[in-house]
């Protein structure tokens, strides 16, 4: 398994002259230098580590593998072993890369300083993120992940009727509201002395146009998903 030491087919000794010079040469180490009593201790250590390593690799394998006979039977044990610290997802752009641009847009009902209620136009927050990423060699997580993943989180914890499912649904809703309110305040949407009373979020999904050379056709008409108006708590309403 020591890939860098060469597999069985590697020319013998090709890399071995360079193989690890023990950085701390000392008296003979390893099990050979131990008396029987200590050798038993070492054997125990080898066994414990070997078992732990095998179990861990096996658990990670089952965690990333598609649902199967074993995961159906022992799903709970696998989750208990891996969550929360070893959770992982490597379906990178798989099975298919996302073929839609999903833009999150927001508008607000604002009470202006002189008491009028005004409804703002839709602001495309994803487009703002996109512009911040354009020509940026080091996009920030705040531009690339924050809104995008917050929307994914919202969608995955809400039914098609936009009602939250469980605690995570409620968390997702508050999180998304915090983000849009933060962005609205940054754009000074409420104006001087004004407060945000309500906000409304919608998503605009547009199919990525297929490559010119493919000859495929997809509809360029965007699909909207509009959420209900949410009231903004007093402590978030002003800047």
């Amino acid at each position: 398994m020591n890939a860098y030491d060469g597999g069985p087919t590697a020319p013998a000794g090709a890399e071995h002259p360079a193989a690890p010079t023990p950085p701390y040469p000392g008296p003979r180490t390893g099990v050979a230098a131990l008396s029987l009593r200590y050798q038993i201790g070492a054997a125990l250590a080898v066994a414990v580590v070997a078992i732990t390593v095998c179990v861990h690799i096996g658990m990670v394998f089952l965690h990333v593998a598609p649902p199967n006979t074993v995961t159906k039977k022992h799903g709970k044990a696998i989750d208990d072993w891996l969550y929360p610290e070893f959770e992982q997802n490597w379906k990178l752009f798989a099975p298919n890369p996302l073929q839609q641009n999903i833009a999150v847009q927001v508008r607000a009902r604002v009470r202006t300083a002189d008491g009028y209620i005004r409804t703002t136009g839709w602001q495309d927050l994803s487009a703002q993120d996109g512009r911040a990423i354009d020509g940026n060699p080091l996009p920030s997580h705040t531009q690339q992940n924050e809104l995008r993943r917050s929307w994914d989180f919202f969608v995955s914890t809400h039914g098609t009727d936009n009602r939250p499912v469980g605690l995570r649904g409620a968390l997702a809703e508050t999180y998304l509201r915090h983000i849009v309110v933060l962005r609205l305040h940054r754009a000074d949407a409420a104006g001087k002395g004004g407060i945000l009373e309500h906000v409304q979020v919608r998503s605009r999904t547009t199919a990525v146009p297929p490559p010119k050379w493919s000859g495929e056709q997809v509809s360029a008409t965007p699909v909207y998903r509009e959420l209900p108006w949410w009231s903004v708590p007093a402590d978030e309403a002003a800047r």
């Binding site: 298919n96 073929q99 990423i133 995008r148």
Partner: peptide, 25 residues
């Protein structure tokens, strides 16, 4: 998992991420 995707099969998959607003600097 990519092998199972139609876009990786028809050879266009790499085109799509490059067109997403979040991944096209």
């Amino acid at each position: 998992y990519k092998i199972q995707g139609s876009r990786w099969q028809d050879g266009t998959a790499v085109y799509y991420p490059l067109q997403l607003d979040s991944f096209s600097p």
